[in-house]
Design a protein around this nucleic acid. Structure first.
Lengths: 314, 314
DNA sequence: TTCCGGTCTGAAAACCTTTTCATTCCGCGT
DNA sequence: ACGCGGAATGAAAAGGTTTTCAGACCGGAA
């Protein structure tokens, strides 16, 4: 329609500087009027780049992940990439299969996989460019947060409020995030001389918090730090039902800062982890990896959000 | 490697019945050992089917949508399709553009678009097979819920508790869901003789509920129905801050049944809309549309979840 | 005038499948 | 013995791009 060959159309659209301005404008004009966009599948066939990214999350129903998805999605679109989303339903076994299926159709993968074993992750990363989010494996590009610093902020806050004996409700033992949190917490409490009571592991969900609340109450602590906000909310729920005043009788502190945290009453004091930013950083690192073959690591800052669920120790 | 032509490989893998068993087995064996999977982009080039679906949601941060995404995602994977996800950030203007970009790479689109104008939707649907979720447009395939029945359940529940004067806090006027809810509610209250006080429109979010709470309180009603759960939670939050007892002084009723609804205290009575099921149905309808060119409509049942936020009228 | 270099454009190959059409081979009926 | 039909396979085209290579054209230098 523009009276030029397909080759010139390609050049006019993707490398405009090499075609004569008059021709270029004519081609682009015609293309626009026809609503023509290059077929990305055909392009991918020859360039080897599909312009697609894969994103794997363990469970969208966990309010932590939609924010990450949002970040990935937004940044990917800015970089003119589309996003394949897969939810593994908390099944680490299914993850590898999903990644491999996706692998053929994407340039790279942003992987949120708190549970998958490290060797498996390495194997996957060798097959398809991969960036880990909220998971660190030596040698692989990853986005995480400064857990240690967040934990330091949380404990300092509690100490300032007069707490000296603190419980920790742990998440799944196999989860990397939980291991990190435990490690940080132990380090911080040892350094500050605070007494730490570890309550054992619960499901990282609302009902996990509900189920452990009575044991926390029996542990004679003045404050409790939960593995994440969902668990903290479960604690709050059960404590309210038992008539325990928060924060007067017990201070409750969460981790993540999911949107619900400030919607409940009392609002939850929590260590905010960057979520949307982590998603964006994941995409940045992935694109960087694709361009330069360099695996980078990024550690994002955390921030204690002081709300109503923590107060002076009795 | 199997000593046969590419044509035979294709046949052995996708139409096994037309190749001699011995050959077929040999080919499949070699394919497996090589980890060979047909390149879907190349296949799409010739078959015209990509095996990909698009999914557009207005805002993943709204807890209503992750469940839908989960449903779409799960069912699509069962049908061996991958899912492109796009979040439009509540920007109806951007939606059309996103759909068109996605259109070339997918067989069809599952579209959650409460705001987009009807003509625009029709135009889009003419360009690419589209199924609407929680939106009804005559002639287009769509998945919705029985709002009228849900509203009937809600109002009957309130009537049974002795409520006779009920407030409704509306969502965006341009939203299809809000229009449906208002329409249903008016019909039900007219029929039952309940007095309906319409409080006007708020943002369909937590802060929307917070901001309207005092006006509801001044309206001298004994119960309030909110456009959705987020607004209802905002109401609860502000009411708690004002020292109003729920449900003793005021009953609060939501819509959607997002996961948070049962995490707050008191837990929120709400009309549950099928979310994951809606996503699954969306995929089913889309695949049906692709196969048979027939546009179907599906109406899913709603279910009142009675929890702690509603009680007898004073 | 000739030749050179540079700029712009077109032809053709390549990417990886699937599908159509043709070919080969075999067994069977006449 | 011949021909026919059916089954199995291969060759080649097609799908929509991008890239490489070659060619056309033009201006300027020798």
């Amino acid at each position: 329609m523009a009276g030029v060959s397909a080759a010139t159309v390609t050049r006019a659209l993707s490398t405009p500087d090499v075609v004569r301005p008059a021709t270029r404008d004519r081609v682009r004009e015609v293309a626009a009027s026809l609503g023509y966009h290059p077929n990305r599948a055909a392009r991918g066939l020859i360039t080897g780049r599909t312009g697609n990214l894969g994103l794997l999350v363990p469970d969208l129903a966990n309010p932590f992940f939609p924010s990450i998805v949002k970040g990935v999605q937004g940044r990917a679109h800015e970089a003119d990439h589309a996003v394949f989303l897969a939810d593994t339903d908390e099944d680490p076994a299914a993850e590898a299969g999903l990644v491999r299926k996706l692998a053929k159709q994407v340039d790279g993968i942003v992987l949120c996989s708190p549970r998958m074993a490290e060797p498996e992750l390495r194997a996957l990363a060798a097959e398809v460019p991969t960036v880990l989010v909220y998971r660190r494996v030596p040698g692989l590009p990853s986005v995480t947060a400064e857990f240690l610093d967040g934990m330091r902020q949380a404990v300092s806050h509690l100490i300032a409020l007069g707490h000296r004996r603190i419980a920790y409700v742990a998440g799944p033992r196999t989860s990397w995030a939980n291991r990190e949190r435990v490690r940080s917490l132990r380090a911080v409490t040892r350094r500050t001389g605070v007494e730490l009571v570890e309550m054992g592991t619960v499901a990282p969900q609302f009902h996990g918090g509900v189920s452990v609340a009575d044991r926390v109450l029996a542990a004679a602590v003045t404050a409790v730090i939960a593995y994440n906000d969902l668990v903290a909310l479960g604690l709050l729920h059960r404590l309210a039902a038992r008539g325990v005043a928060v924060p007067d009788d017990l201070s409750v502190l969460g981790f993540d800062d999911i949107p619900l945290a400030e919607m409940v009453h009392p609002a939850l004091t929590t260590v905010a982890l960057p979520k949307e930013e982590a998603g964006q950083a994941g995409v940045d690192l992935l694109l960087h990896l694709l361009d330069s073959r360099k695996a980078v690591r990024r550690d994002l800052p955390t921030q204690l959000m002081v709300r109503g669920s923590t107060g002076p120790a009795r």
